[in-house]
């Protein structure tokens, strides 16, 4: 009992620390973020802190703009209000060149992998290195093979992206994302559409990469089990607001019905199974009247 208590205490500790957390410990800081897609409000004032060297997961139902959030953090989209700071630099105020300089130190794993289809696996991983570092061919070759070895695909170096399975393509994309040893890597739905084996491979890869190279990771996902198993800190977003935050245990212990429904995957609850509509009787009667 006593051990359980102390565990509970140690778990809640980072939360207390957070208020007094210095900017040094934070890699990215989002404050009061608002974003509209046309008239639709995607984010309505969101605060996020991404700690260095940790895996932060942002979760939420599909269509809550999680990918949009990554695009806002990486400066591909511009917020309508609020600030996004990465490594002490305000993303919105950066010039194009400075933004590109910053992006060299950020990696991003796209949902589809986004491999360049006209280059083979080796050239895809070599691409960012060739673009940003002038290395002799022999050094480049070694570097690329090391990165491919890290994701277990050194043997697939000569294959074209079209010859890869979905899981392999995502691992190649991961190798490419870490090619320049970024300080931060963003994963966009890394577990969707994967079979259990490649899912397991990806989960352990993300953890290993984060721990081995002191990288900061942001995972955007709606796969509760996999994400909670590796994340250090969770944010749950819905309807443009943060519904819950904390360590996985804290979030699991959250009392709110909504959070419980999401975490347990219950079909009905605060989020209704039915898309808002008039009653079924009215709809059916109408179709008769027509």
């Amino acid at each position: 009992m006593a051990t359980a208590q102390s565990k509970q205490a140690s778990v809640t500790l980072p939360r207390e620390e957070r208020s007094g957390m210095t900017d040094e410990q934070m890699l990215a800081k989002v404050r009061g973020l608002r974003f509209y897609h046309g008239d639709r409000c995607i984010f309505d004032g969101i605060d996020l802190d991404i700690q260095r060297g940790r895996i932060t997961a942002i979760m939420g139902p599909s269509g809550t703009g999680k990918t949009t959030l990554l695009k806002l953090i990486s400066g591909q989209l511009h917020a309508d209000a609020g600030t996004v700071e990465v490594d002490g630099q305000s993303i919105q105020e950066l010039s194009r060149d400075a933004l590109y300089q910053l992006r060299i130190r950020m990696g991003m794993l796209f949902q589809s992998g986004a491999l360049l289809t006209d280059l083979n696996v080796f050239e895809n991983v070599a691409f960012p290195i060739r673009e940003h570092a002038k290395l002799p061919e022999s050094v480049l070759r070694k570097l690329v093979l090391i990165k491919l070895e890290a994701v277990g695909l050194r043997g697939a170096a000569a294959l074209m992206p079209s010859q890869l399975s979905g899981g392999m393509a995502r691992r190649v994309a991961l190798a490419r994302a870490i090619a320049l040893d970024p300080m931060m890597i963003m994963y966009d739905e890394p577990f969707t559409g994967q079979d259990p084996i490649s899912m397991g491979v990806l989960v352990s890869l993300i953890r290993q990469l984060n721990d081995a190279s002191e990288m900061t990771s942001i995972i955007v996902s709606h796969d509760v089990t996999e994400t909670t198993s590796i994340a250090d800190y969770l944010y749950i977003i819905a309807n443009g607001k943060i519904m819950a935050e904390g360590t996985p245990q804290e979030v699991a212990a959250n009392e709110s019905d909504w959070v419980r429904q999401f975490m347990q995957g219950e079909p009905d609850g605060p989020v209704h199974y039915h898309y808002p509509a008039q009653t079924l009787e009215q709809d059916l009667l109408q179709s008769v009247c027509h």
Partner: peptide, 17 residues
């Protein structure tokens, strides 16, 4: 198709215009 398969965004994220 490069746009649809996020290859263009991918390039942008690799700091390549």
């Amino acid at each position: 198709l490069m746009k649809a398969t996020e290859q263009l965004s991918g390039l942008e994220m690799m700091a390549v215009d």
